[in-house]
């Protein structure tokens, strides 16, 4: 079976500054993976390259065996680190938008999640707080039955109580064959759901290991290992 995501010497430069350097990764299906690293380590850049929002400077990147394009976009569900929804639509209209464009979108699921978070589908995004908008975006992204979920800082802007619900939502809404990549630096919060971690440091992969391996070999939690690897 092919890997859901493969990269070979993937490099990205901005203005002559190398943000990602020779990233080689093979990511299998059916995993929950933490893409971890300090600010500016290239997490967002990597995720944006996978979504074809950035063009690589050099190297190869394959998703589902294909170069980023229309076909890969159909199988990736992406949560960016910013608000990408326009502010004039109602939540219900945005759900219609997603249903129109993504064949794997399950509107029923989205309405269920809205209900359990007490969000009104008739509210306009304009009138929502930043945290609420993030919740709406996460609901939209998790209502798809995608093969690869790329979640960039999914819990960064929400309160700790909502964090638990969101992690729970993520776990409940992804299918066994799908792979989920979460980028964050709030490691303690997500540690318990991860199968595997990738540590990025200054644009390079310094480690890709399963959580079990890490626990066996070093006897440390991901959080303490992270603090050790990235000690300032």
């Amino acid at each position: 079976m092919t890997y859901i995501l493969e990269s070979e010497n993937l490099t990205k430069e901005f203005n002559g500054i190398t943000v990602l350097k020779n990233v080689n990764l093979k990511i299998p299906r059916g995993r929950i993976i933490g893409l971890l690293g300090p600010n500016g380590s290239g997490k967002t850049t990597f995720i944006k390259l996978c979504n074809a929002l950035l063009t690589p400077t050099s190297g190869k990147l394959l998703i589902n065996g294909k170069k980023p394009g229309v076909e890969t976009k159909a199988v990736i569900s992406y949560l960016p680190e910013r608000s990408y929804l326009n502010d004039w639509m109602k939540v219900s209209e945005i759900i219609g938008f997603f249903r129109d464009f993504y064949e794997d979108f399950n509107a029923h699921k989205a309405y269920d999640m809205l209900k359990s978070l007490n969000l009104n589908p008739n509210d306009k995004l304009r009138n929502m707080s930043k945290g609420t908008k993030e919740k709406v975006q996460l609901i939209l992204v998790m209502s798809r039955e995608a093969q690869l979920y790329l979640l960039d800082e999914p819990i960064g802007g929400v309160d700790p109580a909502a964090r638990d619900y969101i992690l729970d939502t993520i776990l409940r809404n992804y299918n066994e064959d799908a792979t989920l990549i979460l980028s964050t630096h709030l490691i303690a919060d997500i540690e318990k759901i991860l199968d595997e971690v990738i540590f990025l440091k200054e644009g390079q992969v310094v480690m890709q290991q399963t959580v079990d391996q890490i626990r066996e070999e070093s006897g440390k939690s991901i959080d303490s290992l992270f603090r050790e690897v990235f000690k300032c």
Binding site: N51, L53, V70, Y78, L85, N86
Partner: peptide, 17 residues
């Protein structure tokens, strides 16, 4: 705004040419 601003993050991740 819709293609090259923040909304572009949604538009360019739609499975559309």
């Amino acid at each position: 705004k819709n293609l090259l601003g923040d909304e572009g993050y949604l538009m360019f991740t739609l499975p559309v040419k």
